[in-house]
Design a protein around this nucleic acid. Structure first.
Lengths: 243, 243
DNA sequence: GCCAGCGTTTCAATAATTGAAACGCTGCTG
DNA sequence: CAGCAGCGTTTCAATTATTGAAACGCTGGC
C-alpha cells in the first residue's frame, strides 16, 4: 500500500465525516500511529484539501470544492443538460437527472430536483448500480462496453435475479428505446430513463425518478415520453442544433 | 518533498487542465520520469480522482466532484446565504457572493450571478486577496486574527500601497460597517461588501460585484445598503430567527 | 516495414516513510 | 493546586517504499 493510498484514505475519511476529526481518532481509524497521520495530513493541509480548526481538529478543506467544480464545469454534457432537466423538473414537479458512464461505472452528473416533500435527491458524483437501474439497462442495451457488470446484487425483492432475465429485459429496452425501473434498486423508488444518442453513440441517459405511487399516477406512457423528449433535446443541444 | 506532494501536484494539474493529459506530458510538467508519474497516478485512478480515457490519457475524475460537494454541503453558512444572495441578485441583476476566511485565506463560498452580459463570475472555492478587496478590509476591521495579511501586492494603480494607508482605510470601514473596493484588485471591477456578524463574531461577508460603470450608476449608497441588508438577513437566518 | 512515441513493467540504488518515544500544552480531577 | 491523562507535534534510527533508466509490447505515421 503506497503512501498516496494512505493520504487518500485520510482525505476520503475527512470528506465523509460531517464534523471535524481529532488527529488521534483519525489515526486510529486509519490504523496508523499519530505521528504518521500527522505527517500525511501536512501536505493535505498545505494545499487546502484539509483544514484545522482552532482546536487542532481536522476537516475536509475548501480546495476540494474548487477541484470538484473544475471537474463539473468541463463536462459539456452537464451544462447542455442542465436547462433541459430544469424545464422538465419544473413541468412535472419531479426529479430529473443525468447519468453517464465513467471508467465502467455510472455516475450522476447533473440533476434538477422536483418539489415534492418526498422526492428523489441523488447526489452529484454518486454511483448507481448497473443491473438494477433504468439507466444501467440503457447502457447494457446501447453501449455495454462502457460499463462493467459485476455480480447481480439483490437490493429488493424486485431486483432482477438471473443473467437470463436481465438479458431479455435489456433486449426489450433496446427495442423500445427507453427503460424503467420500479423498485428494483430501492423500495418505493420508480424511474424512467431514456438514452442520449449522438454521433451514433450513447452519451448518457436522462432519468425521471419519483415515488412509485406518483409514478403510477403520472403513468408510464407520460413518464417515458417526457424522458425521451428531454434526452432528444439534450442530444440536439450537444450537436449544436439548438441555440 | 513528499510523495503525497507529488501526487497532489498531479491531481491539481489534472484538475486545472480542461482536456485530458498524456502521461508523458504530465510527467514532463511535473518534472519526473514517466514511470514515476505512472505509479503516482495509479492510486488516484483506483479511487476515481483521476481517470483514463480510451487512448490512455489522464484527466480529473468524478470522485473529485463528490468530495467537493461533501465539503460544500456541510457549510451551514452557504446554505443559509444562498436564497438571500439569489434574491438580492435577482433584484439588482448583479452578482452577489459570500466570502469567508478559512485557514487565514478568503474563499468564495457561495454566489448568485447577475444577468449582465458583462458580469462578475467568481469561482466557488477560489481565493481572493486580503488587502485589495472589500471583503478583506472587513476582515481586517472586524476579525484580523482570522486572516493572514502578506505583502501588499500591487494589482492595479488603485491598489493600496502602504500599510499606513491600509490601516486608515480599515479604520473607516470599521466605523461605517461596510467596505468598498473600486478597481483596487482588478481593473473595471467594483465591489461593495458587508459583514455577517453573529454571536459577536464575524462569520463571513456578503459582496456585490459589478463593473465600475454600473456600480457608479447604482450608487454607492444603494449598493452598500443592499449588501448590509443581505448580510443582516443571513445573520438572522444562521441564528434561526427566520424560518 | 520501419521508426518514433506511447503507456506500462521491471529492479537495484536510493531516499522517504515509519513509529516509539518524548515534548509542551490543555483541561480535568482528586 | 498538584497530578494526570490526553492532545497535537517533533525527533531519529530502522525500515520500506520510491526512484528512474531500461526494456516491453503496442499503435499510428511515413
Amino acid at each position: 500500500m503506497s503512501t498516496i493510498d494512505k493520504a487518500l484514505d485520510a482525505l476520503f475519511l475527512l470528506s465523509e465525516r460531517a464534523q471535524a476529526l481529532r488527529l488521534a481518532d483519525l489515526a486510529r481509524e486509519l490504523g496508523m500511529p499519530r505521528s504518521s497521520a500527522h505527517r500525511i495530513l501536512a501536505p493535505l493541509v498545505k494545499r487546502g484539501l484539509a483544514e484545522q480548526d482552532g482546536d487542532g481538529r481536522y476537516r475536509a478543506g475548501f480546495a476540494l470544492m474548487a477541484l470538484g467544480l473544475n471537474v463539473a464545469s468541463r463536462e459539456p454534457l452537464a451544462t447542455a443538460a442542465k436547462p433541459v432537466l430544469e424545464t422538465a423538473a419544473a413541468e412535472l414537479g419531479e426529479t430529473f437527472f443525468l447519468v453517464v458512464a465513467r471508467a465502467g461505472r455510472l455516475v450522476v452528473l447533473e440533476k434538477a430536483e422536483g418539489n415534492g416533500f418526498l422526492r428523489a435527491a441523488p447526489r452529484l458524483g454518486a454511483n448507481v448500480p448497473v443491473h438494477a437501474t433504468a439507466v444501467g439497462k440503457l447502457y447494457l442495451a446501447f453501449a455495454p462496453e462502457l460499463v462493467t457488470l459485476d455480480e447481480l446484487a439483490r437490493y429488493t425483492p424486485a431486483t432482477v435475479r438471473s443473467r437470463k432475465a436481465l438479458d431479455s429485459e435489456v433486449d426489450r429496452v433496446r427495442a423500445q428505446g427507453w427503460a424503467t425501473n420500479v423498485e428494483e434498486w430501492q423500495a418505493g423508488l420508480a424511474v424512467a430513463a431514456a438514452p442520449i444518442m449522438s454521433h451514433g453513440q450513447l452519451q448518457g441517459a436522462v432519468a425521471l425518478a419519483t415515488v412509485t405511487a406518483r409514478f403510477t399516477a403520472i403513468g408510464s406512457t407520460t413518464a417515458t415520453r417526457r424522458v425521451v423528449h428531454a434526452a432528444e433535446g439534450i442530444a440536439l443541444r450537444i450537436e449544436g442544433r439548438r441555440p
